[in-house]
Computed example of a mutant assay.
Amino acid sequence: MAHSTFDLDVRGHLGVREQLALLSLTPQLRRRLLNTALKRMRSMSRQRIRNQQNLDGSPFAPRKSAGKGKKKMEAGLGKLLQVTSVTPDQGVLGWKNALTAWVAAQQHNGVSERRTAQQMKRWSKVPEGTAATQKQAKRLRRLGFRVRQAGKKKLVRPSVPWILEHVNYAQAGLLIRILDDEQGESSGAQSWQITLPKRQFLGVHTDRDTSQVLNLVLQQILNSPP
């Protein structure tokens, strides 16, 4: 599975003097250090989404259909981004919901694969609790989502109940992004290439950037009143 979290290990990002200072801190203060550093990196990630920029400062690959009124790409993922775990030595920035993390990984790392009408036909019922939402199902219908159903010769627009029964949350999220970008393609196609470009917003660009954040937070903790 593609990476959908940013793992921060304080070791290896500090100089010798800073590591000695770190060792003098209590486990509680070391956790505070990592928690604060990760929250700063979360703010940096959200700022990139607001600016629609990748880690290296380059702009996000544009949508193929740039209609007016569309929300900024990855905005929903940014709102749900949080510190999911933290110890005195290591912390993780990501998403607690596994399906949301999967969608984020597709967006952050990019994906390219071919889907066919036959594959859609073979989709089975999804496990309880992982189905697409009503909002997603209605959005898919508005975007022209079509499948081949039993007894039908042509691709048809499935009902909301069919989508809820056969499409899970993660699939729906990815399909919405694809169909939203590919509005110009024929809705009757028998197969199509799913291509999402990398839009890398999570974490920091270089190890040097990580070290700078950690050193800054460390100095603030060392200089704070006892």
Rank of each mutant, 00 (worst) to 15 (best):
Trp95Gln: 01
Val160Ser: 07
Ala66Ile: 03
Gln53Trp: 00
Met120Asn: 12
Gly15Ile: 11
Ala66Cys: 05
Asn51Phe: 04
Thr36His: 07
Leu55Ala: 02
Arg141Met: 07
Arg42Tyr: 02
Leu55Arg: 01
Phe6His: 03
Ala104Phe: 02
Leu175Asp: 09
Pro127Val: 05
Ser187His: 12
Pro27Leu: 13
Gly69Gln: 09
Ala104Arg: 00
Ile49Val: 14
Ser124Tyr: 03
Arg32Gly: 12
Arg146Phe: 04
Lys125Tyr: 06
Gln119Met: 15
Asn51Leu: 13
Trp95Cys: 00
Lys70Ser: 11
Val156Ser: 09
Ala2Pro: 13
Arg157Thr: 15
Phe201His: 09
Gly129Ile: 04
Trp95Thr: 00
Arg63Ser: 13
Lys68Gln: 14
Gly184His: 15
Met44Lys: 05
Gln90Trp: 03
Lys71Leu: 10
Leu23Asp: 14
Arg114Val: 14
Ser112Gly: 06
Gly67Glu: 09
Asp209Arg: 10
Leu81Cys: 02
Glu128Asn: 05
Ala150Phe: 04
Trp123Arg: 15
His13Ser: 13
Ala117Tyr: 11
Arg50Tyr: 04
Lys64Ser: 13
Lys125Gly: 12
Lys71Asp: 05
Leu143Ile: 06
Leu29Thr: 10
Phe201Leu: 03
Gln19Glu: 15
Leu216Ser: 08
Asn51Thr: 05
Ser4His: 11
Lys71Ser: 08
Ile194Pro: 01
Lys39Met: 15
Ser159Phe: 07
Ser58Arg: 07
